[in-house]
Design a protein around this nucleic acid. Structure first.
Lengths: 215, 215
DNA sequence: ATATCATTCCGCCAATCCGGGCATTGTTCA
DNA sequence: TGAACAATGCCCGGATTGGCGGAATGATAT
């Protein structure tokens, strides 16, 4: 079975040379080639590609916005970003928009076919410098998220349930109804939670629970 | 100039076969080969490698902890993780620990030399499935960070102050003291906050404030 | 100059929460 | 076979919050 590929790039020469290149691979089929992304969703619906090659710099709408729209409409399609730029913003925005790969144009001829194959088999081809950027970003982002590693409060399952209800904003009475226990029992659990979290009011519980993701 | 490489892997056969493989490349030099990471910092200090190949599964200390220690001590050294596992936890933990690359062992022979070279030139070699995981993670993480653009509640400055106090867990009385206003005034502000946030209890206020970063 | 709104303040009553203590049942583990 | 603990339940009294309404000041805007 052949792999259907669509190309979005405002540079005609590039589109043609990519098409040439892809034609040398017999299981690849170029089913669309567009100079702008203004109608990308419609274009894509018509030629229903499996893979889209997307240039970042294009008139009217940027490739990043296009990816966002396309992935929303066709989540199964794999999008490979191609660009001459490698500034962090664009790279991360593309990734967040849903791109499955990101290669620099100077690697294009050499790596393109390989990259497409890799994507096809569940990979995410990235030019080396891009990959490095991504890893670095991951490291810094995680550091902001993780350090909140729960100091471990030894809450029992039931206590966690009650806690969850509290965070939702339920009153003791409502929690009692929801969990099919008495009001007093809820109170007992809450008292335990107070002890374990070293707090003394519902608001502190909620703040602590959310900030430390005990939720 | 040659590239100095150290290997950490509890499997002797693997260490030897990797060493063999690397010897076929003339600019590579294996300067250390260790079966455990208990003394990894000392070992590394002695053989001062440019690149470290690190197995994840090892007795005593996991490769992930080792990376953490090593990068703290020798931030310039590039660490390439090698593993048979590709469960998300380990992958992300390794990355956060400071690994510069992550390849699966079944790709080892074929890709190892290439991966080391890639790292040397500022890349971050990853096996395709790993790269995909990383991108997916980036996407989900960013989504949790970005979309929190406040739905805008038109809180006045004073109301925000009060809100901040509430989130800290202060009672009305404490807030009154802190802001040098009366208890009743605090209550008035809180009432307004309730209206504007469409909630009806302090716990909901705290939850909403934190989750939507109005704090 | 009139309206709007932020900020400050007051009172009342009902609802809810907090802190203390105590009791029962069942499970788990040493 | 006790000890420890989770889970359930109850009572009291005092503290705090929630919902209702009202009001004065000053700034800003129309």
């Amino acid at each position: 079975m052949s792999l259907r590929i669509a190309i979005f790039d405002d540079n005609k020469n590039i589109r043609e040379s990519i098409t040439m290149l892809l034609k040398t691979v017999k299981e690849f089929e170029v089913v669309g080639s567009f100079s702008h992304v203004l109608d990308c969703v419609d274009d894509t619906r018509e030629c229903h590609p499996d893979v889209i090659l997307m240039d970042i710099e294009m008139p009217g709408m940027t490739g990043i916005e296009a990816v966002l729209k396309l992935k929303k409409e066709f989540p199964h399609i794999q999008v490979l970003m191609q660009t001459v730029f490698e500034d962090d913003e664009r790279v991360f925005d593309s990734i967040c928009a849903g791109a499955s790969g990101y290669i620099l144009k100077n690697h294009l001829n050499v790596k393109l076919v390989e990259a497409i194959r890799e994507m096809q088999f569940g990979g995410s081809p990235m030019s080396p410098s891009i990959a490095r950027k991504v890893l670095n970003k991951m490291q810094s982002v995680q550091q902001h998220i993780k350090p909140e590693q729960a100091p471990e409060y030894n809450l029992t399952p039931r206590e966690k349930e009650v806690l969850a209800c509290i965070v939702e904003g339920l009153s003791y009475k409502m929690i009692a109804d929801k969990l099919f226990i008495s009001y007093e029992t809820v109170r007992s659990h809450v008292k335990k939670i107070y002890e374990k979290l070293h707090v003394a009011s519902l608001t502190e519980v909620v703040a602590k629970a959310i900030n430390q993701r005990i939720v």
